[in-house]
């Protein structure tokens, strides 16, 4: 493990408005990184019936639920600005977009508070409490 590749700088834009993303967490491993016609194929086919979102992907039925982030937290999509040419260089990422909620999709079953990702949302609040300095 190259020691210097352990630093990743987050370049913060100078006050420019960051784009808000539409974000979905799918219940499958899609072997792809890059462009996809989400707005053409996926978004228009999402149906909302009685608090339940349904859609299908590759012929499989999905059920979804909106997940809102804990208060004081924002969703960020970080993107590498450019791959470092050597191990000696720091990696640089930028905030490419933000999101305030996302849709969590389960295969066939409606998401519940017992789904791991829903449970994981309890972490930030607990972390804050554990971080809080103790009184003398």
């Amino acid at each position: 493990m190259a020691m210097n590749s352990c630093v990743t700088v987050v370049q913060l834009g100078s006050g420019t408005q960051v784009h808000q993303s539409e974000v979905h967490l799918l219940p499958c491993d899609i072997e792809h990184d890059g462009a996809a016609q989400v707005a053409e194929f996926f978004t228009p086919t999402v149906k909302e019936r009685k608090h339940e979102k349904t859609v299908s992907f590759r012929g499989r039925g999905l059920k979804g639920q909106e997940v809102t982030h804990p208060q004081g937290y924002t969703g960020l999509v970080l993107k590498e600005v450019q791959k470092p040419s050597s191990d000696q260089e720091d990696r640089v990422v930028k905030v490419s977009s933000v999101f305030h909620n996302f849709t969590y999709w389960n295969l066939e079953t409606p998401p519940t508070s017992d789904d791991r990702v829903m449970m994981s949302m309890a972490w930030p609040k607990l972390a804050e409490m554990m971080r809080a300095p103790v009184e003398d």
């Binding site: 993303s21 539409e22 974000v23 979905h24 967490l25 799918l26 219940p27 499958c28 491993d29 899609i30 072997e31 792809h32 990184d33 890059g34 462009a35 996809a36 016609q37 989400v38 707005a39 996926f42 999509v77 977009s97 791991r116 990702v117 994981s120 972490w123 930030p124 972390a127 804050e128 554990m130 971080r131 809080a132 300095p133």
Partner: peptide, 28 residues
């Protein structure tokens, strides 16, 4: 990192295969 097998993200008009969700929380 929230790491559960068989997840990927749609972010606008892209797919991100890595379905992890990273939490950045304050620490003492």
């Amino acid at each position: 990192a929230f790491v559960e097998d068989f997840h990927s993200w749609f972010i606008d008009q892209t797919v991100q295969r890595d379905g992890r969700l990273l939490y950045v929380t304050p620490m003492d």
